[in-house]
């Protein structure tokens, strides 16, 4: 009946309702990585899973519209650069990975700046990296079938 790629109407409706919440939860896990359980890796994987969710339910094209492959690749490299620049920023204070950014007030969102920025960098890296890996596997399957 439906010629467009993707799964059934039920899956599409549920995806439309939940995918934003999953993305928000991933961002929450990243931003609160220094306060509560979680962190850059777990949050990054959840962010990647939200795009994978979109891809499985609606097909590749819709997911590419939200996060295309060149953009994901650039974001992944930016995560790596941000992390290494946090590390090099430590050279100002003395040595590699020295926390020169300050500690802030404990239990507040903007505290432990080094951990916060590292979490954001790692989440960018992990999220975009895993999304790229899954996309590549999906595209490789297409190539073989042709």
């Amino acid at each position: 009946m439906n010629k467009e790629p993707g799964m059934t109407v039920i899956v599409k409706t549920v995806t439309r309702l939940t995918v934003g919440i999953i993305l928000m939860y991933g961002i929450y896990i990243v931003m609160h990585g220094h306060l509560s359980p979680g962190g850059g890796f777990a949050g990054g994987v959840i962010i990647a899973l939200s795009f994978v969710h979109l891809m499985l339910a609606y097909g590749k094209e819709v997911a590419f519209k939200k996060l295309s492959m060149p953009v994901a690749s650039v974001l992944e490299s930016m995560g790596a650069i941000l992390f290494i620049s946090v590390a090099f920023l430590g050279l100002v204070g003395g040595y590699f990975f020295f926390h020169t950014l300050g500690k802030g007030e404990p239990f507040s969102l903007l505290s432990a700046y080094m951990v916060l920025f590292s979490n954001i960098a790692i989440s960018l890296k992990v999220g975009c990296g895993l999304f790229l890996v899954l996309i590549t596997i999906a595209l490789a399957g297409k190539e073989i079938k042709k």
Partner: peptide, 23 residues
């Protein structure tokens, strides 16, 4: 470190070299 989550504090501050290797 100022981070209340000790796991994050260890992997991203005390042992950030390991995280760099993981990345």
């Amino acid at each position: 470190t100022g981070a209340t989550n000790l796991v994050s504090a260890v992997i991203l501050d005390f042992r950030a070299y390991d995280t760099l290797g993981e990345a």
